[in-house]
Protein backbone atom coordinates (compact mmCIF):
# COMPACT_ATOMS: atom_id res chain seq x y z
CA UNK A 1 0.00 0.00 0.00
CA UNK A 2 1.24 3.49 -0.84
CA UNK A 3 2.55 5.21 2.26
CA UNK A 4 2.91 8.91 2.89
CA UNK A 5 4.58 10.82 5.72
CA UNK A 6 2.55 13.92 6.50
CA UNK A 7 4.61 17.11 6.41
CA UNK A 8 2.08 19.46 7.94
CA UNK A 9 4.16 22.72 7.98
CA UNK A 10 4.31 25.09 10.91
CA UNK A 11 1.75 27.51 9.45
CA UNK A 12 -0.51 24.69 8.33
CA UNK A 13 -0.58 22.96 11.69
CA UNK A 14 -1.23 26.06 13.75
CA UNK A 15 -3.45 28.11 11.51
CA UNK A 16 -5.08 25.73 8.99
CA UNK A 17 -5.74 22.49 10.89
CA UNK A 18 -9.07 21.81 9.09
CA UNK A 19 -7.28 21.85 5.75
CA UNK A 20 -4.79 19.29 7.06
CA UNK A 21 -7.57 16.97 8.21
CA UNK A 22 -9.06 17.16 4.74
CA UNK A 23 -5.71 16.37 3.19
CA UNK A 24 -5.55 13.19 5.27
CA UNK A 25 -9.12 12.39 4.26
CA UNK A 26 -8.36 12.69 0.56
CA UNK A 27 -5.16 10.66 0.77
CA UNK A 28 -6.81 7.85 2.68
CA UNK A 29 -9.73 7.82 0.27
CA UNK A 30 -7.41 7.13 -2.63
CA UNK A 31 -5.76 4.29 -0.80
CA UNK A 32 -2.76 6.02 0.70
CA UNK A 33 -1.80 5.16 4.25
CA UNK A 34 -0.70 8.22 6.23
CA UNK A 35 1.83 8.53 9.01
CA UNK A 36 2.70 11.59 11.03
CA UNK A 37 6.23 12.04 12.42
CA UNK A 38 5.26 13.79 15.62
CA UNK A 39 8.56 15.47 16.29
CA UNK A 40 8.29 17.74 13.25
CA UNK A 41 8.16 21.47 13.86
CA UNK A 42 9.31 23.60 10.92
CA UNK A 43 11.50 23.10 7.85
CA UNK A 44 13.64 26.12 8.76
CA UNK A 45 12.77 28.30 5.77
CA UNK A 46 11.68 31.38 7.77
CA UNK A 47 15.09 31.52 9.43
CA UNK A 48 17.23 30.64 6.45
CA UNK A 49 15.50 33.02 4.05
CA UNK A 50 15.74 35.85 6.57
CA UNK A 51 19.50 35.55 6.59
CA UNK A 52 19.69 33.44 9.77
CA UNK A 53 21.27 30.60 7.84
CA UNK A 54 22.93 29.02 10.86
CA UNK A 55 19.63 28.76 12.71
CA UNK A 56 17.90 27.64 9.54
CA UNK A 57 20.41 24.85 9.14
CA UNK A 58 19.92 23.74 12.74
CA UNK A 59 16.15 23.56 12.36
CA UNK A 60 16.65 21.71 9.09
CA UNK A 61 18.80 19.12 10.84
CA UNK A 62 15.98 18.57 13.30
CA UNK A 63 13.47 18.18 10.48
CA UNK A 64 15.76 15.73 8.77
CA UNK A 65 16.14 13.76 11.97
CA UNK A 66 12.36 13.47 12.26
CA UNK A 67 11.86 12.25 8.71
CA UNK A 68 15.07 10.33 7.94
CA UNK A 69 14.03 7.10 9.60
CA UNK A 70 10.65 7.02 7.90
CA UNK A 71 9.79 5.59 4.55
CA UNK A 72 7.44 6.43 1.74
CA UNK A 73 6.72 9.79 0.16
CA UNK A 74 6.64 12.97 2.19
CA UNK A 75 3.74 15.20 1.26
CA UNK A 76 3.02 18.81 2.25
CA UNK A 77 0.22 21.22 1.33
CA UNK A 78 2.85 23.85 0.56
CA UNK A 79 5.05 24.50 -2.47
CA UNK A 80 7.43 26.74 -0.56
CA UNK A 81 8.19 24.24 2.22
CA UNK A 82 8.64 21.46 -0.31
CA UNK A 83 10.85 23.62 -2.48
CA UNK A 84 12.95 24.47 0.54
CA UNK A 85 13.55 20.82 1.41
CA UNK A 86 13.96 19.70 -2.20
CA UNK A 87 16.25 22.45 -3.48
CA UNK A 88 17.81 24.09 -0.46
CA UNK A 89 18.52 21.22 1.93
CA UNK A 90 21.07 19.50 -0.34
CA UNK A 91 22.82 22.86 -0.88
CA UNK A 92 23.05 23.51 2.86
CA UNK A 93 25.53 20.74 3.53
CA UNK A 94 28.90 20.13 1.86
CA UNK A 95 28.97 17.26 -0.58
CA UNK A 96 30.39 14.10 0.89
CA UNK A 97 29.04 14.69 4.38
CA UNK A 98 26.49 12.40 6.00
CA UNK A 99 24.04 15.31 6.29
CA UNK A 100 24.28 15.97 2.58
CA UNK A 101 23.52 12.35 1.79
CA UNK A 102 20.45 12.35 4.02
CA UNK A 103 19.32 15.68 2.56
CA UNK A 104 19.53 14.33 -0.97
CA UNK A 105 17.56 11.23 -0.04
CA UNK A 106 14.86 13.27 1.65
CA UNK A 107 14.76 15.73 -1.24
CA UNK A 108 13.85 12.92 -3.58
CA UNK A 109 10.94 11.84 -1.38
CA UNK A 110 9.27 15.17 -0.75
CA UNK A 111 6.35 16.44 -2.87
CA UNK A 112 3.73 19.12 -2.80
CA UNK A 113 0.18 17.79 -2.57
CA UNK A 114 -1.07 18.56 -6.11
CA UNK A 115 2.26 17.34 -7.51
CA UNK A 116 1.86 14.10 -5.57
CA UNK A 117 -1.72 13.52 -6.74
CA UNK A 118 -1.20 14.19 -10.44
CA UNK A 119 2.38 13.06 -11.02
CA UNK A 120 2.90 10.25 -8.50
CA UNK A 121 -0.61 8.87 -7.93
CA UNK A 122 -1.62 9.91 -11.46
CA UNK A 123 -5.06 10.86 -10.23
CA UNK A 124 -6.83 14.01 -11.31
CA UNK A 125 -10.47 13.10 -10.61
CA UNK A 126 -11.36 12.72 -6.95
CA UNK A 127 -15.09 12.74 -7.51
CA UNK A 128 -15.36 16.18 -6.00
CA UNK A 129 -18.38 18.41 -6.49
CA UNK A 130 -18.13 22.18 -6.09
CA UNK A 131 -20.62 24.12 -8.23
CA UNK A 132 -19.02 27.55 -8.04
CA UNK A 133 -17.00 30.06 -10.05
CA UNK A 134 -13.43 29.52 -9.04
CA UNK A 135 -10.29 31.52 -9.80
CA UNK A 136 -6.81 30.20 -9.11
CA UNK A 137 -3.88 32.17 -7.63
CA UNK A 138 -0.43 30.90 -8.68
CA UNK A 139 1.85 30.78 -5.64
CA UNK A 140 5.39 31.88 -6.52
CA UNK A 141 7.34 28.99 -5.00
CA UNK A 142 4.95 26.38 -6.34
CA UNK A 143 5.13 27.67 -9.91
CA UNK A 144 8.50 29.35 -10.38
CA UNK A 145 10.24 27.38 -7.63
CA UNK A 146 8.95 23.85 -8.11
CA UNK A 147 7.72 24.12 -11.67
CA UNK A 148 4.23 22.98 -10.70
CA UNK A 149 2.26 24.98 -13.20
CA UNK A 150 -0.82 23.23 -14.48
CA UNK A 151 -1.33 20.45 -11.95
CA UNK A 152 -3.76 22.56 -9.95
CA UNK A 153 -5.79 23.46 -13.00
CA UNK A 154 -6.04 19.83 -14.06
CA UNK A 155 -7.35 18.84 -10.64
CA UNK A 156 -9.82 21.73 -10.62
CA UNK A 157 -11.13 20.92 -14.08
CA UNK A 158 -12.11 17.45 -12.89
CA UNK A 159 -14.30 18.89 -10.14
CA UNK A 160 -17.94 18.61 -11.17
CA UNK A 161 -19.89 21.82 -11.41
CA UNK A 162 -16.79 23.94 -11.00
CA UNK A 163 -16.33 26.82 -13.42
CA UNK A 164 -12.67 27.74 -13.64
CA UNK A 165 -12.36 31.41 -14.44
CA UNK A 166 -9.28 33.39 -15.30
CA UNK A 167 -7.56 35.64 -12.79
CA UNK A 168 -5.71 38.72 -13.93
CA UNK A 169 -2.03 38.74 -12.88
CA UNK A 170 -2.48 35.27 -11.36
CA UNK A 171 1.29 34.76 -11.26
CA UNK A 172 2.06 38.07 -9.59
CA UNK A 173 3.21 37.73 -5.99
CA UNK A 174 0.55 38.33 -3.31
CA UNK A 175 2.99 40.23 -1.09
CA UNK A 176 3.40 37.75 1.78
CA UNK A 177 7.07 36.85 1.28
CA UNK A 178 7.59 35.55 4.83
CA UNK A 179 9.39 38.20 6.85
CA UNK A 180 8.80 40.70 4.08
CA UNK A 181 5.25 41.09 5.41
CA UNK A 182 6.60 42.44 8.69
CA UNK A 183 9.78 44.16 7.51
CA UNK A 184 8.01 46.23 4.83
CA UNK A 185 4.36 46.01 5.92
CA UNK A 186 3.11 48.93 3.82
CA UNK A 187 4.48 47.51 0.60
CA UNK A 188 3.24 44.05 1.54
CA UNK A 189 -0.20 45.51 2.09
CA UNK A 190 -0.15 47.31 -1.25
CA UNK A 191 0.76 44.08 -3.04
CA UNK A 192 -1.91 42.17 -1.13
CA UNK A 193 -4.50 44.79 -2.04
CA UNK A 194 -3.56 44.58 -5.70
CA UNK A 195 -4.04 40.82 -5.55
CA UNK A 196 -7.39 41.17 -3.77
CA UNK A 197 -8.55 43.77 -6.32
CA UNK A 198 -7.76 41.34 -9.12
CA UNK A 199 -9.61 38.56 -7.31
CA UNK A 200 -12.66 40.75 -6.78
CA UNK A 201 -12.60 41.88 -10.40
CA UNK A 202 -12.53 38.31 -11.64
CA UNK A 203 -16.13 37.74 -10.56
CA UNK A 204 -15.10 34.53 -8.81
CA UNK A 205 -16.98 33.19 -5.81
CA UNK A 206 -13.93 31.45 -4.60
CA UNK A 207 -10.17 31.75 -5.09
CA UNK A 208 -7.80 28.81 -4.78
CA UNK A 209 -4.69 29.69 -2.79
CA UNK A 210 -2.62 26.56 -2.26
CA UNK A 211 0.09 27.95 -0.07
CA UNK A 212 -0.40 28.52 3.67
CA UNK A 213 1.44 31.85 3.74
CA UNK A 214 -0.40 33.22 0.71
CA UNK A 215 -3.66 31.79 2.07
CA UNK A 216 -3.58 33.60 5.40
CA UNK A 217 -2.49 36.77 3.60
CA UNK A 218 -5.24 36.72 0.97
CA UNK A 219 -7.92 35.40 3.27
CA UNK A 220 -7.13 38.19 5.71
CA UNK A 221 -7.23 40.71 2.89
CA UNK A 222 -10.62 39.54 1.68
CA UNK A 223 -11.90 39.60 5.26
CA UNK A 224 -10.71 43.20 5.63
CA UNK A 225 -12.62 44.14 2.49
CA UNK A 226 -15.72 42.40 3.85
CA UNK A 227 -15.73 40.34 0.70
CA UNK A 228 -17.89 37.28 0.31
CA UNK A 229 -15.26 35.61 -1.81
CA UNK A 230 -13.80 32.59 -0.06
CA UNK A 231 -10.10 31.91 -0.24
CA UNK A 232 -9.58 28.17 -0.08
CA UNK A 233 -6.72 25.75 -0.34
CA UNK A 234 -7.11 23.37 -3.30
CA UNK A 235 -7.44 20.58 -0.72
CA UNK A 236 -10.58 22.15 0.71
CA UNK A 237 -12.23 22.11 -2.72
CA UNK A 238 -11.12 18.60 -3.61
CA UNK A 239 -12.55 17.41 -0.29
CA UNK A 240 -16.01 18.63 -1.29
CA UNK A 241 -17.80 15.44 -2.16
CA UNK A 242 -21.35 15.18 -3.31
CA UNK A 243 -23.62 13.98 -6.02
CA UNK A 244 -22.59 15.03 -9.48
Amino acid sequence: MMKVQLFVTCLGENLLPDMLQKMVGILERIGVSCEFPEGQTCCGQPFFNSGFQKEGREIALLWMKMFADTDGYIVAPSGSCVEFVKHRYPKMFPEGTAEHKIAVQLAERVFEFSQFLTNIMEITDLGAFFPHRVACHSPCHLTRGLGVRDEQQRLLRAVRGLELISLNDAETCCGFGGIFSVVYPEVSMAMMEAKVMNIMASNAECVVVSEPGCLINIRGGLQKMNSNIRAMHLIEILAQEGAA
Binding site: L15, Q21, E38, E186, I216
Partner: peptide, 26 residues
Protein backbone atom coordinates in the same frame (compact mmCIF):
# COMPACT_ATOMS: atom_id res chain seq x y z
CA UNK B 1 5.82 44.32 16.62
CA UNK B 2 3.11 41.92 15.40
CA UNK B 3 0.94 44.94 14.62
CA UNK B 4 3.01 45.13 11.47
CA UNK B 5 0.84 42.27 10.24
CA UNK B 6 -2.50 43.40 11.58
CA UNK B 7 -2.10 46.97 10.29
CA UNK B 8 -2.57 45.45 6.84
CA UNK B 9 -5.06 42.68 7.43
CA UNK B 10 -6.39 40.55 10.32
CA UNK B 11 -4.44 37.51 11.54
CA UNK B 12 -6.19 34.13 11.67
CA UNK B 13 -6.86 32.85 15.17
CA UNK B 14 -5.12 29.69 16.38
CA UNK B 15 -7.92 27.15 16.17
CA UNK B 16 -8.38 23.47 16.19
CA UNK B 17 -5.82 20.94 17.19
CA UNK B 18 -4.43 18.80 14.42
CA UNK B 19 -2.35 16.61 16.69
CA UNK B 20 -5.31 15.90 18.97
CA UNK B 21 -7.42 15.03 15.92
CA UNK B 22 -4.68 12.85 14.49
CA UNK B 23 -4.36 10.87 17.71
CA UNK B 24 -8.08 10.12 17.74
CA UNK B 25 -8.11 9.42 14.02
CA UNK B 26 -5.20 7.01 14.24
Amino acid sequence: PLDRWTMARPFPAFRGDFRGWWKKHK
